[in-house]
Design a protein around this nucleic acid. Structure first.
Lengths: 147, 147
DNA sequence: TATATAAAAGACTAAAAAGGTCATAAAGGT
DNA sequence: ACCTTTATGACCTTTTTAGTCTTTTATATA
């Protein structure tokens, strides 16, 4: 249950590479695909979508490529994940008002709502910066991510 | 992302009906399917699996049918969900030791681990009893499930 | 023992989603 | 012009989802 697709993994690896680059440096899709170990034309699709959604900026021709549209501190993991996988919704019941006929009586509903809130808030709390900044060694203590 | 399948929904609705019955009362698959509004032969598969996993007990022939194998207070939503959907694993990386080559360097890893722990602990904290016992009216306050 | 009743098992299917690939077009630089 | 690089859209294969249907096996009861 709840599995990230390959597309999602690829997307994260790709954009994370971009975030690891010195600010403003553009990267070619073939470069990103190489480093992130993702089929090139598949990653291209993913990044074209990122560009549409305003997560990255693209430019064509010589010297073109991709850059983050905003600083890595201002892009959350939630945005990236939702960009590729769609909204985080553990159950059809939660997609929108009236989507589920049972809504008012269903006792499971609030449980899924809570799951949704929990997951969203975890992913919202992590930026690309957090992820591309190398973690301190485990025995140094203070691992922000493990609860 | 993270969507419960129809099978998962059906499973929950079905077993919840069983949990709502006076203890020890058997129900026919056709009865459960009717009440839970699930295609009968599909639900049959689901319940055969539940039986194998020891969530319900089945008996054939006249007077046969299905009963919960344990009291509703001792079956968690986690068990039910994992019985149909498999383990709760937000990312391939988390399925087992060595499943992911990047494991030691991947900074996203701990985030998924945390998501997994959160979700599992929410679902583990809810029993079929909690779900079949009707909730108090919303304005009575104290809704245990909404955070 | 024959019969009706119910779940168990397994084969089968259609439709959708996942996971790509490829050819061509359009834009930008030299 | 020509080369580089992204954009777009058509296409494809494999896997998963969401079932159905038939046959078999177990059980109670007349």
């Amino acid at each position: 249950m709840m599995e990230l697709t390959r597309k999602g993994e690829y997307a994260i690896r790709g954009i994370l590479y971009l975030a690891s680059l010195p600010g403003g440096k553009v990267a070619l899709i073939s470069e990103i695909a190489g480093v992130a170990d993702v089929p090139k034309s598949f990653l291209a699709k993913i990044f074209q979508n990122f560009a549409k959604l305003g997560l990255v900026k693209s430019s064509r021709g010589t010297g073109g490529g991709f850059v983050l549209a905003r600083p890595a501190t201002q892009i959350t993991l939630r945005e990236v994940v939702e960009a590729v996988e769609g909204p985080i919704v553990p159950n059809r019941c939660l997609v929108g008002k009236g989507a589920c006929a049972r809504e008012s009586t269903c006792t499971v509903h609030p449980v899924w709502r809570k799951v949704q809130n929990e997951v969203v808030s975890i992913l919202e709390g992590i930026t690309l910066e957090d992820l591309s900044r190398e973690r301190g060694l485990p025995d140094k203590g203070e691992n922000v991510w493990m609860s």
